[in-house]
Design a protein around this nucleic acid. Sequence first.
DNA 1: CATTGTGAACTGTTTCACAGCG
DNA 2: CGCTGTGAAACAGTTCACAATG
Lengths: 279, 279
Amino acid sequence: MATGRNHRPATTSRSRGIPEATVARLPLYLRALTALSERSVPTVSSEELANASGVNSAKLRKDFSYLGSYGTRGVGYDVEYLVYQISRELGLTQDWPVVIVGIGNLGAALANYGGFASRGFRVAALIDADPAMTGKSVAGMGVQHTDELEQIIDENGVSIGVISTPAGAAQQVCDRLVAAGITSILNFAPTVLSVPEGVDVRKVDLSIELQILAFHEQRKSGEEAPEEDTAPPAAPPADSVTTRRPEAPAESAVRAGAEAHDEHRTEGPDGDIPAVMPA
Amino acid sequence: MATGRNHRPATTSRSRGIPEATVARLPLYLRALTALSERSVPTVSSEELANASGVNSAKLRKDFSYLGSYGTRGVGYDVEYLVYQISRELGLTQDWPVVIVGIGNLGAALANYGGFASRGFRVAALIDADPAMTGKSVAGMGVQHTDELEQIIDENGVSIGVISTPAGAAQQVCDRLVAAGITSILNFAPTVLSVPEGVDVRKVDLSIELQILAFHEQRKSGEEAPEEDTAPPAAPPADSVTTRRPEAPAESAVRAGAEAHDEHRTEGPDGDIPAVMPA
DNA sequence: CATTGTGAACTGTTTCACAGCG
DNA sequence: CGCTGTGAAACAGTTCACAATG
């Protein structure tokens, strides 16, 4: 709702040729290859590389086949060469300035994250809405105020933004980022972002991951006889509203999935993804 | 290699009935529903809920159809009832103690993350290998030493572990967690974890996400004429080894994808996912 | 009669298995 | 001979479109 836009599937962009699923694995291969490269391993077979990347070799070969024929039959792949080809394919031969908006606990952790710098990414600025944060130094870098967001993006030619604000601020920040010219967003806030066509959003949500794990975990311990659809309570839906109350939760019993969703408080040790660094 | 195990696809467990893709979306629906619930909205149509969740309504309806018929034709879904059904399906009616291992910047941010507590998850312990961390208080909770890992897990009946150590320590920690009885792992370290059959691993990797964004970003600005396979340099693979050097990178030019991969230093302000909290 | 629930068509992804080749 | 590259088969996930229905 809020700033109402159209929802793009977030994983859109069937980027001519390479399947999305393959793109998502390229960084994995690249990581494994880089490790091999550092150990000066000259060549690697699809089987070995697949193991190191946690995929199976058929998939890996098919993935590479989309990039071209970079292997040698009977031998394997040249490590350096592949590193180069994949880097190029991913666009990592140039470097990408990024801004991080929302320097709370998480934002600060991201800013400190070395993986940023070591790959083709460079943190161009840390931005926070809290005037108390402005000027503070995080990860050896001054935090700048949201007011300067547009200028920072413009001057640095930033096209990738990371949002680590509380959920309530995320859409707003997103809108400003997009308006300022950003076309790729990595969202850590637990909200669905609406963006115009052409802007890519990827999300990382801790609690979603945990919930998925919980689902599987439950299956493991629960039903020892995993056969047949032992249909759940299967209670009939509402006949009147508000009177509805399944066989279970009394109003507030089920708290799962709760989101602050628009936390008003600007700080506090337990906000949804913290907005501001306490210290 | 390291502790060599078998690689499970990480997204295994075709958990009888509900497709994995659906499971991954349930938390999204739950979040949207919880927000509606808080605003005391009694019912919602598939269209509305789909919008709020960032998916399309056909998908949402199909997803729900796997859970059973919880809607009312001509009306929509009862919000409270659905919240309950999904929570139950996800196993969130019980609460899940989790341990966080590796209390660096990221680990601390995770510990502070409110989303944990508000859903069915409870941080049972914070664990770090650094004796200097032990006893320190993070997010109002004492950090305990790795030595106590097994005992903590056992005593609290923990089955979900979060790994936020540096990459080099992750497999080792993972092995101990698994040995101690943990069967679900959320891995923030940039490594492939090997786990025995029956253990679920989900990974969250910042730099992978960024690389995927970079890929799409590159496609946007690059090739304005996105037709025809303008085959890349297409350099021929090795004829001899080590002599191989494509038309591009001189030894260290391409740094993309670099991983510390076995960082020896136990601290420092810019290790791969920091190991220890500076302060 | 608006909206769900779902077969059927489709699109995307993985796996198989083997021909092709260095 | 070993390993890549890839068609073809199998499988998974999404979308369509409409009959069923409260």
